[in-house]
């Protein structure tokens, strides 16, 4: 079957077992049978409240968590079934941006080391000078200075760190980027910059983006399609306009109704 979809997730379950051995076991169904797809170059948002399992979806797709059952087909290959060694090569195409820019960069490594890592792991460069050239390029593309590579993460603000984290992802030119609450930890004025940057890079590179967020305003701004998650399930999927302008599911309606609106009418 030739299709336009880059990633297909079919009936994915990720369950966690708490306790064990002597304790009574408790199974948490963080992701409980979800199905969706992302087309090439498309932005799909996964939106929901805390604990709905949206982050677990992202972590399962990158195999940071083990799926309990289901299929994840990326470009015709089953991601969950392939051996770890094969998946390590595929990681180049499935990249992830994390929420907290203070936690996602190793505090002990200079930026140049952090950004070299993906290049050397995937053998994309032959020498250190090659790597530096690429790093300088990517830093400038995310709006940083090329000399910033010689500094440590703690010398940067939250917004700058998130740009660096984005650079680490984009340096591999992946085909799918999973952004897990990538702008939630940032101040409003900085959030807008980073959001614009992600949108710009997505359009330039034509990569697909799975944008995981709880913030509906941000989601509307960036997505083509939206999937609404509630308690481990997707309750509604649709184009941005279907979800925001003609929501069907009562939970989607509740979410949209809960957003405190700024009286923009008066303002603009």
């Amino acid at each position: 079957m030739i299709s336009n979809s880059l990633l297909e997730v079919r009936n994915l379950h990720t369950h966690f077992t708490l306790g064990g051995w002597l304790d009574t076991k408790q199974v948490i169904r963080a992701v409980n049978g979800i199905t969706f797809h992302i087309n090439r170059g498309e932005v799909l948002s996964l939106v929901g409240e805390s604990g709905c399992g949206k982050s677990t979806v992202g972590r399962t797709l990158t195999r940071l968590e083990n799926a309990t059952s289901g299929q994840v087909i990326f470009d015709g290959k089953d991601v969950l079934q392939m051996p770890a060694s094969e998946f390590r090569i595929l990681r180049r195409d499935i990249q992830m941006i994390f929420q907290d820019p203070y936690a996602s960069l190793n505090p002990r490594l200079k930026i140049v080391t952090t950004l070299s890592e993906p290049l050397f792991c995937h053998k994309l460069v032959r020498s250190r000078s090659d790597a530096r050239e690429k790093i300088a390029d990517i830093l400038e593309r995310v709006g940083m200075d090329r000399n910033d590579m010689h500094r440590y993460p703690h010398e940067f603000s939250g917004g700058q760190r998130q740009r660096i984290a984005i650079a680490r992802v984009m340096i591999l030119a992946p085909r799918l980027v999973i952004a897990d609450e990538a702008v939630s930890a940032l101040d409003v004025s900085i959030q807008a910059q980073v959001l614009n940057l992600i949108k710009k890079l997505q359009q330039e590179n034509g990569m697909a983006l799975l944008f995981i967020s709880h913030d509906l305003g941000v989601v509307r701004h960036i997505s083509d399609r939206v999937a609404v998650m509630y308690q481990g399930n997707i309750v509604e999927t649709g184009t941005k306009h279907q979800i925001f302008d003609e929501p069907n599911h009562s939970y989607t309606k509740l979410l949209l109704g809960s957003i405190p609106r700024i009286p923009m009418g008066i303002y603009s």
Partner: peptide, 21 residues
């Protein structure tokens, strides 16, 4: 730590995770 996850996503193997991170 998240940066360990991030390094895994960047393609780091066991050796790199243990000794570099």
């Amino acid at each position: 730590e998240v940066f360990i996850d991030a390094a895994k996503c960047a393609g780091a193997g066991h050796g790199a995770l243990l000794f570099r991170h």
